[in-house]
Simulated scan of single mutants.
Amino acid sequence: MARKRSSSFEDVVVALSRLPWWASLLIGFVSWLILNPVASSPVVVPAGVQISDMSGVMISQLWHTFAMFGQYLIPLVCVFGAIGSVFGRQRRKKLLNDVKSATQPGKTIDGLSWPQFELLIGEAFRRKGYSITETGGKGADGGIDLILRKDGEKYLVQCKHWRALKVGLPVVREFFGAMAAEGAAGGYVVTSGQFTKEAKAFASGRNIELIDGVALKSWIAQQHTIRTPTVEIKPPPVAPAMTPVTNTEPLCPVCSAAMVRRLAKRGANAGNAFWGCSKYPRCTGTVSG
């Protein structure tokens, strides 16, 4: 099946989306700072210019025209690249989390396509503290797929999504040559399958780490989702409300003893309730009510 050809615009956006989103925006801002003064200044043709000297004027005019359009077009492309970088980051996070919790064969490591496999490996290294540059390699068959940087050192990664074949000595030897050419401090060859004994023997002592399918699955299972720590803000403790103490029974105004409720049996207040001292008849203190 023929591969669909992409436009130059799409190629640039894809390249920018592989950078951190802030890097794309920074490139767009710097390009605007450079091109805007050129676009704002008029093209002046000196008097007495001969036809033989018009080439310089034409170059100046072309540069001015490019600046007029480029001061807006390049930042716009960079904005699209930054958006693609953000969405790509979310896609990689989801991919790794889906593989970690996969219960269906199609979502395990073996069920991924080779582009998804490279995204998965990149996200796993990113969570180990590396900054990642995705180079795209040479497709499904090889090439340097990721460039890692950490503590000022550069490392290379080659991904081999080979389930049926073992990664042999030629692949590891070629990768070691690429490390030397790039001046990398070390490198990783990651496969969903296995390595031959010859490949393991060659990598030993050469600062090349070989990660096979079994080690990769264990590695992915141990990845932790990076979460921003949250601080729980609790409201200050509220002191319990003071319940007012009320006396249901008044005290005797004469001897301060407790009073009891009584009913007047005679006199002008016959039939009305009142409070009488509990020490009656020794105390005859009363309270109406």
Rank of each mutant, 00 (worst) to 15 (best):
G84F: 01
S85G: 05
V86Y: 10
R89M: 04
R89E: 10
R91D: 13
R92H: 00
N97G: 06
N97F: 05
D98H: 10
V99H: 03
S101H: 12
S101A: 12
T103K: 15
T103L: 13
Q104C: 02
P105H: 11
G106R: 11
T108R: 15
T108M: 09
T108Y: 02
G111V: 05
L112Q: 10
L112D: 09
S113Q: 10
S113W: 03
S113Y: 05
W114H: 13
P115T: 01
Q116N: 11
F117W: 07
E118R: 13
E118T: 13
L119P: 00
L120H: 11
I121M: 04
E123W: 01
E123L: 01
E123N: 04
A124S: 12
R127C: 00
K128W: 01
G129N: 05
Y130K: 04
S131M: 13
I132R: 04
T133F: 15
T133K: 14
T133I: 12
T135M: 06
T135Y: 08
G136M: 02
G137P: 05
G137D: 11
K138Q: 14
K138C: 05
D141F: 10
G142C: 13
D145A: 04
L146P: 09
K150L: 05
D151E: 14
G152L: 05
G152F: 06
Y155C: 00
L156C: 05
L156T: 09
L156N: 09
Q158F: 11
H161R: 13
W162K: 08
A164M: 05
L165E: 10
G168A: 14
P170K: 10
P170C: 06
V172C: 02
V172R: 10
V172K: 09
E174N: 15
F175T: 13
F176G: 12
G177C: 04
G177I: 07
A178R: 13
A178Y: 14
M179F: 11
A184G: 11
A185K: 15
G186S: 12
G187R: 08
G187I: 06
Y188L: 09
T191F: 08
S192R: 07
S192T: 13
G193A: 12
G193F: 10
G193Y: 13
F195G: 01
F195Y: 15
T196K: 00
T196P: 06
T196G: 10
K197A: 14
E198F: 01
E198K: 12
K200F: 00
K200H: 03
A203V: 09
G205Q: 07
G205K: 09
N207L: 02
I208F: 03
I208N: 01
E209F: 01
E209K: 15
E209H: 14
I211E: 00
